[in-house]
Amino acid sequence: MKHFILAAIAGLSLAATAAQADPAEGIWQTEVDDGAYAHVQLAPCGGAVCGTIVRTFNASGEYNSPNKGKQIVRSMAPQGGGAYEGQVWRPSNNKIYLGKMTLAGERLQLKGCIAGGLLCSSQTWARVQ
């Protein structure tokens, strides 16, 4: 009986953790940028979401980019309604931009902006898992 109670408590703890997961968490595929694309793992970082490049691809297939393991989405804080604000890093020019993310189902729109958000470039990422 004691083992059953402990197992039930452990199960409830896992369910509570899963229920608190941010809906943006997971692996996302970027759009092609400068001939390559990546899989990015979005995961909690403090009270925000951060994204790390975990796989990289080009026209020849998967390759070992020097950007693997680097954080591309930085401190995206939830704003409600699927919106996030933080920073994004663009590997092709090594610049960090004011970032915005909007989650809509299995799509994630990311924007990197300058001039206080007046000029933005965007990509739409697809959920891989």
Rank of each mutant, 00 (worst) to 15 (best):
A59M: 03
Y37G: 02
R107C: 00
I96S: 08
C50M: 04
T102D: 05
C50R: 09
I96A: 01
N94E: 15
L110H: 05
G86C: 01
G26S: 01
G51T: 03
G116F: 06
Y37M: 07
R127V: 01
R107Y: 07
R127H: 02
P78D: 02
K68R: 14
G47R: 12
G86L: 05
Y63F: 15
L103Q: 01
P23R: 12
K111D: 14
C45Q: 09
Q109C: 02
Q87P: 06
G82E: 06
L119P: 01
A19G: 01
Y84K: 05
A104G: 00
V40G: 07
S75P: 01
W125C: 05
K70R: 14
P44I: 02
A115Y: 12
P23E: 06
I96T: 14
Q109M: 11
K2S: 03
T56R: 07
P78R: 07
A16Y: 13
A43I: 00
T124L: 00
L14K: 04
T52V: 12
Q79T: 13
G86Q: 13
D33T: 04
G35K: 11
N93V: 04
M76G: 08
G61S: 07
D33A: 07
G46M: 06
G46H: 12
G69N: 11
P66V: 02
Q129E: 14
G112V: 11
T56W: 13
F4T: 09
G46T: 07
S121P: 08
A8I: 02
V128L: 04
T124M: 00
Q20N: 13
H3Y: 11
G47Q: 10
L12A: 10
Y97M: 04
G82A: 13
A59C: 00
H39Y: 12
L118A: 10
G82P: 08
A38F: 12
T102G: 01
I53D: 03
W28C: 04
Q109E: 15
Q29P: 01
P44N: 02
L118F: 11
S60A: 14
H39C: 06
F57Y: 15
R90C: 10
L119M: 07
N94V: 05
I9M: 04
T30K: 10
A18E: 11
L119G: 04
L42F: 08
G69D: 05
G86S: 07
L118C: 02
P66Y: 05
D34P: 01
L42S: 00
G11A: 09
M76L: 15
S92Y: 14
T102Y: 12
D33K: 13
G51L: 00
Q87E: 14
G35C: 08
V49P: 02
P91H: 09
W28T: 02
A83K: 15
E62K: 11
S92R: 07
S121D: 15
Q29R: 14
A7R: 03
L12N: 12
K2H: 09
K111C: 00
K2P: 04
W28I: 04
A21G: 01
K111E: 15
W28A: 03
D33L: 08
S92C: 03
A48S: 14
R55W: 09
A115G: 02
R90T: 10
A19C: 05
A18T: 06
N94W: 07
A104I: 05
I27H: 13
Q79V: 06
P66R: 03
P23A: 09
A21Q: 12
P91D: 10
M1D: 09
